[in-house]
Structures are given as structure tokens and as C-alpha cells.
Amino acid sequence: MKYYLLSVMQPVTDELPAPEVLAEIGRDLDVFHQELRQAGAWVFAGGLHGPESSTVLRPRADDVLITDGPYAEGKEMLGGICLIKAPDLDAALAWGRKAALATTLPIEVRPFMGEAED
């Protein structure tokens, strides 16, 4: 088994979907997370605040420079993550597909180095 990171790629915008749309996405995510748990693939999941809430720490000589916000601006941001266990990339991609359908957003699937702990 390997760990895979399912990254939710969210558009950078101040406009939120209608409350009923967000409620439906929330229900779909609950179903997806429950399915992960039942399959033994669940490790962790959570949403993130917007990039404006981040702090970046950069090494500078013998010190660390602390700045607000992300290093680069973009049209998408990391909106949430889900860490799963899967036997191979095909299985992880199948979970990623379900995550994309639940969130209605692009999902990046990326393997961790090494094997998952059992």
C-alpha cells in the first residue's frame, strides 16, 4: 500500500456557490469520506482557508524571512486535501475520480514516497 494525496484545486474567487449547492457538495463529500472509511482507505481529509491566510517562511542566509500570503499568485489554490491509502495508482485515481465528482472541482492525485504503514 502507498499513501496518495488528493488535492482539491479550487478557483481563486470571492464568489461562493449558492448555499444549496454548497450543502449538496457537503453531503456528497460526507458520502465519499464514509466510503473511504469503509474501504480502509481513509487517512485524513480537511479543507483549507484561502491563500490570503497563509504565511511563507523562506531561508535567507542564517535567518528565515517571514511573509504573508503565497509565493505566487494563480487562478487556482489548494482548497483542501485528502490523504488516502491505496494499493496502486489506478486505485488512487479511482478515488480521485470520486472526489472530483463529489467536490465538482479538479483533483490532483500525487503519490507519497515509500510505502504506507499498515
Rank of each mutant, 00 (worst) to 15 (best):
G46S: 10
F112N: 07
G74M: 04
Q34F: 00
I84S: 02
F112G: 08
M1P: 09
W95H: 09
M1C: 03
G26K: 00
A41F: 12
A39M: 03
Y4L: 05
A72P: 00
C82D: 14
K2I: 03
F112A: 15
L93G: 02
A100F: 01
G40H: 06
V109W: 05
A92H: 10
Y3I: 02
M113H: 12
C82W: 07
L65W: 07
S53E: 13
E117V: 15
V43P: 02
G96L: 06
L65I: 11
Y4N: 08
P70I: 00
P59G: 12
K98Y: 04
L36M: 15
Q34A: 13
H49P: 01
A86D: 07
V56I: 09
M1I: 06
P106L: 07
M1V: 12
A100K: 07
L16W: 11
R60A: 10
K2H: 15
L78D: 02
K75G: 09
S53L: 10
L93E: 13
L36D: 09
P87K: 13
H33N: 15
A72W: 06
M113R: 12
R110A: 15
A116Q: 08
R58F: 01
D90L: 12
V64C: 11
R37N: 06
F32G: 04
T103Q: 09
E73T: 09
F32N: 08
K2E: 10
Q10I: 00
G46L: 10
P17Y: 04
T55G: 02
K75E: 15
T104D: 06
L89T: 03
R97L: 08
D118I: 06
G114Y: 06
L22D: 02
P59S: 14
E115G: 04
A100G: 05
R27H: 07
L16V: 04
F112R: 05
K85A: 15
V21P: 01
D88A: 12
V12I: 15
E15S: 12
D14W: 01
P111W: 03
E115C: 01
D88I: 13
I107A: 08
D14V: 06
I107S: 10
M77Q: 14
V21Q: 09
K98H: 08
K98T: 04
E117Y: 12
G69Q: 08
L6E: 11
L101H: 03
E24F: 01
D30P: 00
R27G: 10
L65Q: 14
P11M: 02
W95V: 06
S54I: 07
A61S: 14
P106A: 13
M113T: 07
E76L: 13
K85H: 03
L93S: 05
C82G: 09
R58L: 07
A39C: 03
L36E: 11
T67D: 11
K98W: 02
I66T: 14
A41P: 13
E35S: 14
E15R: 12
G74R: 05
A72G: 02
D28N: 14
A99K: 03
E73S: 10
K2R: 15
F32T: 03
G40N: 08
V56G: 00
R60F: 06
R37Y: 10
R97Q: 14
A92Y: 09
D28K: 13
G69N: 08
A39K: 10
G96H: 04
Q10E: 14
G74N: 05
K85I: 14
